[in-house]
């Protein structure tokens, strides 16, 4: 049969967030061999498993909506692919869906993130207020490496598509939940850590944070599938 493109959706959390993108690629190709998925190898001098990831995830970020495309050379039901992969995957990685791809990878425009901030002094009210103030500024200027690896100034304010800041938990031991949507994809890409680092240094607030990418969206804010 003609190699059939399949999109695999998976989560990456727990200890697995410390797997870099390059290492994940290697891991996944071994997993597919282990799981005996009839996948397609690239042709040519040095054949390797065909695999493309829609949107590489930075080290340390939890991914709840990660996508990887492979090609099948023999038919296999989606449920079986999911089950086989899950039986082979290490802790922290799990597949939750497999389907024929609808969008092209280039259709990705946005990602949604859930950031949980834990204030060092336990005062989540103060942290939430200071974060809200920070986000309401007209411009949020920081530095970022451009494609040519040169540091350039960038204003983050217009890039933040939408956000909410809420408090969670009891007094003195609360957290701030910060939901936001940032540009993603091959043209424009903003890492939420860029914003968090700037906030941390400018506000002087002490906090620890965890970041999860919860959704990947197209330009019209449709779920990428």
């Amino acid at each position: 049969m003609q190699p059939l493109p399949i999109r695999i959706f998976f989560r990456k959390k727990g200890a697995a967030i410390f797997i870099s993108h390059l290492d994940l690629t290697r891991c996944m190709s071994r997993i597919m061999r282990r799981a005996k998925i009839p996948f397609w190898y690239t042709e040519g001098f040095n054949p390797h498993a065909y695999m493309t990831f829609a949107l590489p995830l930075s080290l340390g970020i939890t991914g709840l909506y990660e996508c990887m495309d492979i090609k099948l050379i023999e038919p296999m039901p989606f449920e079986e692919i999911i089950e086989r992969l899950n039986n082979s995957l290490p802790e922290g990685l799990s597949v939750f869906a497999a389907a024929l791809p609808v969008h092209k990878n280039t259709a990705i425009a946005w990602s949604r993130y859930e950031v949980v901030l834990q204030p060092k002094d336990g005062d989540s009210g103060k942290l939430a207020a200071s974060l809200s103030e920070f986000l309401s500024r007209e411009s949020i200027i920081t530095e970022k490496k451009n494609k040519a690896k040169k540091m350039v100034q960038i204003d983050l304010a217009p890039h933040i598509k939408e956000y909410t800041v809420t408090e969670r938990g009891e007094e003195g031991n609360g957290a701030v939940v910060f939901l936001l949507t940032l540009p993603s994809g091959c043209t424009d890409n903003i890492n939420p850590h860029l914003l968090l680092n700037l906030f941390e240094s400018e506000s002087g607030s002490g906090f620890s944070s965890t970041v999860a990418r919860t959704e990947v969206l197209t330009a019209d804010l449709q779920k990428f599938v």
Partner: peptide
């Protein structure tokens, strides 16, 4: 772990 080189050295959980 996010502040050290190659955190994968210290987490275990491999296949």
């Amino acid at each position: 772990l996010l502040n050290v080189q190659k955190p994968g050295r210290y987490v275990g959980g491999e296949i």
